[in-house]
């Protein structure tokens, strides 16, 4: 995977957790080569690059980044016994840094759930372990506990390249996600691609449009004054165009999650990111 920087005026350089040198650019941005020739984009850019200096600096500072409060909540839950089986996540998975290495960067994945194999993201997988293995109740989507554990698990892979599977049994999910990505919805009648493929880098009123990448989620967002899942963001984008969003955790959003993750294949995981 080649990493390039574009634009003028390299001001300073910082090093991310994964050892990637990232140029701090005021006008420019860091981009990656697409994973294949069929990729619809000719450069792949993290959402971080479209945010202002202060927001990026906050994301980079593990002490100040508010997403780490969520991570700490997840850390505590990881070793807390819950449910009728008297188990914690740790009872089965051990130390999170070892047990969950290589997980966050490769989801969504096909996993067994309720007796069948289906596309699963980290949030749904956590709930499967709770309901099927711990005798505990599922957490509701975007509740602080579910977000905290998701942040914890994704953060283990921070700096690792996003690497989802799209072939074999994944293909039908991938195609479904692709179709959703290009389908116009809502009274404003737009698709994800209109904003995030055709117009990234441009302003839509005061918003600087990114490629709608997923590598920073769950994210801390000023507007939310808190954390939010990727599906919350999908939902927000669909509501903004006066559409009816799919349910968080639904097959539609999972397919979209797989497809959008592939659009950012190779981007370093940045969880927890900070957004405005």
């Amino acid at each position: 995977m080649m990493k390039k920087t574009v634009g003028l005026g390299v001001a300073a350089s910082v090093v991310l957790a994964g050892g990637l040198a990232v140029a701090e650019l005021r006008e420019g941005y860091v981009y990656f080569e697409p994973s294949s020739e069929e990729h619809p984009l000719d450069e792949i850019i993290s959402g971080r690059e479209f945010r202002d200096d202060a927001t990026r600096a906050l994301q980079e500072d593990d002490f100040e980044n508010p997403g780490f409060l969520s991570l700490e909540e997840g850390e505590e839950l990881w070793s807390t016994v819950d449910g009728s089986e008297n188990k914690s996540c740790e009872s089965c998975h051990g130390d999170v840094a070892e047990g969950m290495a290589g997980v966050g960067s490769t989801y969504p994945k096909l996993m067994a759930q309720g007796g069948k194999t289906t596309l699963t993201n980290i949030e749904n997988q956590i709930n499967t372990c709770r309901t099927e293995r711990m005798g505990a109740e599922a957490y509701k989507y975007d509740k602080p506990q579910l977000t905290g554990l998701t942040v914890l698990i994704k953060n283990v892979d921070r700096g690792e390249p996003v690497n989802v599977s799209t072939e074999g049994d994944y293909e039908s999910w991938f195609k479904k996600g692709e179709e959703l990505y290009y389908t116009r919805v809502g009274q404003l009648d737009m698709s994800c691609a209109h904003c995030h493929e055709e117009h990234y880098g441009e302003y839509i009123r005061a918003d600087h449009l990114s490629q709608g990448q997923t590598n920073g989620f769950p994210t801390y967002r000023f507007k939310w004054q808190g954390m939010g899942s990727l599906h919350r963001r999908f939902s927000g984008c669909m509501k903004n165009i006066r559409g009816v969003p799919y349910a968080k955790g639904s097959d539609e959003f999972l397919a979209l999650e797989l497809y959008t993750a592939w659009r950012g294949q190779g981007l370093p995981v940045e969880t927890p990111s900070v957004r405005n």
Binding site: T183, R184, V185, G186, Q187, L188, D189, M190, H194, C195, E198, H199, M238, K239, R242, G243, V244
Partner: peptide
């Protein structure tokens, strides 16, 4: 085009019930 049609109702998909 990405420009919405400002005076049209049919042919739209998953429109929020308010609209």
């Amino acid at each position: 085009t990405l420009m919405p049609a400002f005076y049209r109702v049919e042919g739209l998909n998953r429109v929020n019930e308010k609209f």
